[in-house]
């Protein structure tokens, strides 16, 4: 390796003049080709959205007629959307999803950040064991817990409440690990100075550590929120009352109730997809960065 690096400057001097025209010619061509391939795939990736949108804008008879057409002969209509919004519970379910996901995210952030801070900074008896147990728990697949959790929620009389939706979803062991690693990198000098001035641990945590950790807290929040917003299995089991369902679970009941109302099915799906897609359009950079930093820590 060392010799390689040393020989490079010499190579550059020798080859650069002759190489540059050749490389300039080659690079754009392959780049154009790559752009075309990626563009075709990107369009293919958008087809399900486009097809769902066009279907939702048709009348039911038009949506169910053969041969299928992209542009309906009788023109576009908003009937499906008005029917779904008028009769269905989609606004209620959206609010339920918003409330439970926000609560899950807030509780997860508070409890994960404080345990991660303790493990990163405070020298207490048993902390290695605690970290070991938290890391080991990453391997437990949530579906294994649904039967005993259902039983537990039933005996606590919490089935069909927001509590049943929120409480079991706030344990995100990989996120504790992600936060601990971030706290480890914050220089200790600031905290030491504050400690010498007699500040309490809690004060140091809330006024020094947390403000410095905004990027990682945002990343964790985004990751947890998306997961909670889209979670299906547990909310599907924990709630039956139509007014308490989250959006994904509510949509499942619509599908069985509407049967062959294709335009209305697609209108509901699009309305359900809308909030997160809008959020994504506005916060694309933060969301992508957040997923890239927390993603490998575990889903």
């Amino acid at each position: 390796m060392a010799t390689n690096t040393l020989s490079r400057p010499a190579l550059r001097l020798k080859g650069s003049v002759a190489d540059i025209p050749a490389r300039r010619k080659r690079a754009p061509l392959s780049r154009i080709l790559a752009t075309v391939i990626v563009a075709v795939l990107a369009v293919a990736w958008l087809i399900p959205f486009a097809w769902a949108t066009l279907t939702a804008l048709k009348s039911e008879t038009e949506a169910a007629s053969t041969p299928i057409s992209w542009i309906p002969a009788s023109g576009f209509t908003l009937d499906a959307f008005t029917k779904v919004l008028g009769s269905g519970n989609i606004p209620t379910w959206t609010l339920n999803s918003l409330f439970t996901s926000a609560a899950i995210t807030a509780i997860t952030l508070v409890i994960s950040a404080s345990v991660a801070y303790a493990i990163s900074r405070i020298d207490f008896r048993g902390k290695d064991l605690l970290m070991g147990v938290i890391i080991a728990s990453i391997i437990v697949p949530p579906p294994v817990l649904i039967i005993p959790l259902f039983q537990q929620m039933q005996s606590l009389n919490l089935i069909d409440t927001y509590w049943a939706l929120i409480l079991p979803q706030v344990i995100h062991s990989p996120m504790v690990f992600v936060l601990k690693k971030f706290f480890d990198q914050i220089p200790r000098e600031l905290e030491e100075a504050a400690l010498m001035d007699g500040a309490s641990r809690l004060r140091i945590f809330t006024t020094i550590v947390l403000p410095l950790s905004r990027p990682i807290l945002a990343a964790v929040a985004i990751f947890v929120f998306i997961g909670a917003w889209n979670n299906f299995l547990w909310p599907f089991i924990a709630t039956n009352d139509s007014s308490l369902l989250t959006l994904p679970v509510g949509l499942q009941t619509i599908k069985s109730a509407y049967g062959i109302q294709y335009a209305q099915n697609m209108a509901s799906a699009l309305l359900a997809a809308l909030p997160l897609i809008l959020v994504f359009l506005f916060f694309q950079r933060q969301i992508i960065k957040g997923v890239a930093t927390t993603g490998l820590a575990g889903t």
């Binding site: 399900p48 959205f49 097809w51 769902a52 279907t55 998306i226 917003w229 889209n230 299906f232 959006l247 994904p248 679970v249 949509l251 499942q252 599908k255 294709y262 099915n265 697609m266 509901s268 799906a269 359900a272 997809a273 997160l276 897609i277 994504f280």
Partner: peptide, 14 residues
């Protein structure tokens, strides 16, 4: 970013 239900509705239809 889509819920599984949304994806399933899209694909069941296609």
């Amino acid at each position: 970013l889509l819920a599984s239900t949304v994806v399933s509705l899209f694909f069941a239809w296609m």
